[in-house]
Amino acid sequence: MDWLSILVTTVEAAIGLETVVYALAAIGINIQFGYAGLLNFGQAAFLGVAAYGMAVTVATFNLPFWLGIVIGLAAAVALAFLLGIPTLRLRADYLAIVTIAAAEIVRLIFRSVQFSSVFGGSDGRQGFADGFYAINPYSPGEYSIGPFGFNERVMWVLTVGWILVALCCVLVYMLMKSPWGRVLKAIREDEDAVRSLGKNVFSYKMQALVLGGVLGSLGGFIFALGQASVQPDLFSTEFTFYAYTIVILGGAARVFSPVVGAAIFWVLLVFIGNTLGEMVGNGIIPSSIMTVNQVGPVRFMLVGLGLMLLLIFRPQGIFGDKREIALDAR
């Protein structure tokens, strides 16, 4: 058993690209689901349209990088309005189904042969990240502390990513302390009561959907830039479900819980994957029970099992407050 490499990959996963991306997506979901009680199951689509908005602007139309970011953000806002206007008046489970359907539509269009001249089909788009790496302040080389290290490109993506995560957390903290945040939480608890106090519930929900979508879309940018490519199947429904698992793991309606949840989620996923991989590789688990290729499915079986057990035994997650969980949302 190579414990050192397991340790290194696990620690790197705690601050790695996936953690940043999922943390940003989960911060968005936390606003929608945790604070406002909206079941948006289409978060992957927000990351998708943002990432593709940027990639297509730069790679297909050869426009500057910053314009790509603007178009990506605009696409996320537009998607939120497109989704919200028909569905926000509906009950929670209807919203869930419609948002999943919308996310699938977005993914299917991205991967279709019909539009492959724009979106690149199932291969997606590459070669749009140069503008981002051109302003990389890190000089080429390996930046490491002991056995842990990243090269200059990863360092740059992670720096930007974690700054964004921090800014989002501050933003959520300040918003939720403000009157706006209190109205949002009140909507989660009792929509009719808020309406009777003269608040425009629909408008508040829409603002929450847009804000959550835009914060999530930052994760889409980081994902696309970190990999220097976008593929449609990165933004599948399962992405959204993992992000929900992260929010529930950390505890809904807490500022830091999406970040901590994302770190724990990826640390566990990478640790279990690598440990099982090593055990299979060294014959500790015989290949009649599990082969190396079956390690991947086992990890995600555990995710599903974990999500079920969390909701049955500890729906408030690690940091949450049971009275503040939006599970009775209508």
Partner: peptide, 13 residues
């Protein structure tokens, strides 16, 4: 809502 999310976990599993 909790049961709906539990069913998602079950589907993943």
């Amino acid at each position: 809502i909790a049961m709906m999310i539990i069913s998602i976990g079950m589907a993943l599993f």
